[in-house]
């Protein structure tokens, strides 16, 4: 009886050894398989995301925001941003904006992280989102995202028409907390486009506006900067010499 039990135990040990050997045979086939990144999945519906986080919209926003931040960096591999699916990414931006338009996390990721893509054409997916992010409550300095969109259009895409459209939008906002350069941007872009007269009109208009308000709302340094910009950047030498505004402005 005891002999039989011992035999059974021994055969079980052998069986276990056999299983371990089988594991060893299977191992080379599994070892080389790596977790593959299949690019950014498309954004789900608002309801689906809400259900996934038990109706907690803020948790959904934060968790999916963090997921977007870390996407592509998987299993020791780092994916270049140009390889991301920006169409899907844009859907995520707009979806998460519906969950929280007050936070600056997703606009920050969109402009400073995904905005650094090696392929400037992909910024066409980022800029419309930044425009929308800027429309949120003005109390949170959202105009900055419009500036960022303008920067991407002007300096990364070299699309001056688009940058000018965004600059017009920025100037029209009249945010009380926005600095005066947000209104000067139109002139800078016009000057870059070679339309110096138009740029001159904008800056001189701003100077007149400031003078009518007895320079109350404008810093003296800003007044000086605008005069300097007109005299040293927009006007040529003969125009400068004849312009009364430039008499007390040192030449560059």
């Amino acid at each position: 009886m005891q002999n039989n039990t011992q035999k059974r135990r021994l055969s079980l040990y052998w069986f276990m050894c056999l299983l371990v050997i089988l594991q060893l045979l299977l191992w080379p086939h599994v070892r080389s398989v790596e977790t593959r990144w299949l690019n950014i999945p498309d954004a789900p519906s608002e309801e689906f995301l809400m259900l996934s986080f038990l109706g907690d919209r803020e948790m959904a926003y934060r968790t999916m925001g963090m997921t977007l931040q870390n996407m592509g960096d998987l299993d020791g591999h780092v994916t270049p941003i140009k390889d991301y699916d920006f169409e899907h990414l844009q859907n995520w931006f707009f979806l998460l904006d519906r969950f929280n338009s007050t936070s600056n996390f997703i606009p920050y990721l969109a402009s400073f992280y995904f905005g650094a893509t090696q392929n400037p054409a992909q910024l066409d997916y980022v800029i419309p989102y930044l425009r929308q992010a800027a429309q949120a409550d003005a109390g949170f300095e959202k105009w900055r995202w419009l500036v960022q969109a303008m920067f991407l259009a002007r300096h990364r895409q070299h699309d001056m028409e688009k940058a000018l459209k965004l600059a017009d939008e920025l100037a029209a906002r009249n945010d009380p907390d926005a600095p005066i350069w947000t209104k000067q941007m139109r002139a800078f872009i016009k000057a870059d486009m070679g339309e110096k007269e138009a740029a001159y009109d904008i800056i001189i208009g701003m100077l007149k506006e400031a003078a009518e308000a007895h320079n109350k709302n404008v810093d003296p340094a800003e007044i000086f900067f605008m005069k300097d910009y007109i005299c040293n950047r927009l006007l040529d030498a003969p125009q400068r010499a004849a312009h009364p505004l430039c008499q007390d402005v040192p030449q560059e």
């Binding site: 986080f53 907690d56 803020e58 948790m59 934060r62 925001g65 963090m66 931040q69 870390n70 936070s103 600056n104 996390f105 920050y108 990721l109 992280y113």
Partner: peptide
């Protein structure tokens, strides 16, 4: 730990993870 991984608004992330 999780919230500190965010590039910005770390405090907000920690708060939400804690609350949930």
């Amino acid at each position: 730990f999780m919230g500190s991984g965010a590039v910005v608004e770390k405090g907000q992330f920690v708060t939400i993870y804690m609350a949930y």
